[in-house]
């Protein structure tokens, strides 16, 4: 139990260090690399000239400081983007407004998981039950597993906001709930 806690602390410290370094380098204007200089596209690829540039699409969306430098949740809620919910007509949209608190977070503030914002983008089946059981306390989530791409880490740290944004999840001070 004690060892587990100190592992948690070390994982949190490692993430925090990267977050601190990233924030010192990432301050200032929002910038997006051109496709021919992003390290993954081949500058000689004949299709490159036809592809939309990230700066063209993303600079008009609500700003953020991490990931794509776009607040995707706000972009959706303000109706600035209107991403389709389905390509098959029979697909149902299931919204759920239910917050779940994860209290076992060592010295960090507790985690609040808002279903609503997640169900605006995702379907229940994306997480349940292969990533998360539908039962409070039944999911042994920790930062090591998340960093390895399990649980929240399936999306956060890859596509949804990065794992260096500790306080976006660890947002509930312990005293707030006790009161």
């Amino acid at each position: 139990m004690r060892a587990g806690r100190s592992r948690h602390r070390r994982a949190a410290a490692a993430v925090w260090l990267v977050a601190a370094m990233a924030s010192t380098g990432g301050a200032g204007a929002r910038e997006w690399r051109p496709l021919d200089d992003d390290g993954v596209h081949d500058p000689a690829a004949p299709g490159l000239q036809y592809l939309q540039k990230p700066s063209e699409a993303l600079s008009v969306l609500p700003p953020d400081t991490a990931g794509n430098r776009v607040n995707w949740v706000e972009a959706l809620r303000q109706g600035i983007i209107k991403p389709r919910t389905n390509v098959f007509p029979e697909t149902k949209v299931n919204l759920l407004d239910l917050d779940v608190i994860f209290p076992e977070t060592s010295e960090m503030p507790m985690v609040r998981f808002p279903h609503l914002v997640h169900t605006e983008w995702l379907d229940c089946a994306n997480c349940h039950d292969h990533l998360f059981k539908k039962k409070i306390g039944a999911n042994p989530v920790n930062m090591f597993k998340i960093l390895e791409g399990e649980y929240c880490g399936r999306c956060h740290g890859a596509v949804a906001f990065p794992l260096t944004e500790c306080k976006r999840c660890h947002s509930v001070p312990r005293n707030d709930l006790i009161r």
């Binding site: 983007i81 991403p83 389709r84 697909t91 605006e120 995702l122 994306n126 999306c155 596509v159």
Partner: peptide, 12 residues
């Protein structure tokens, strides 16, 4: 993701 929600590709 400007054009589609995650679920379109990851669920449907």
């Amino acid at each position: 993701r400007v054009r589609f929600r995650c679920k379109v590709c990851h669920a449907d």
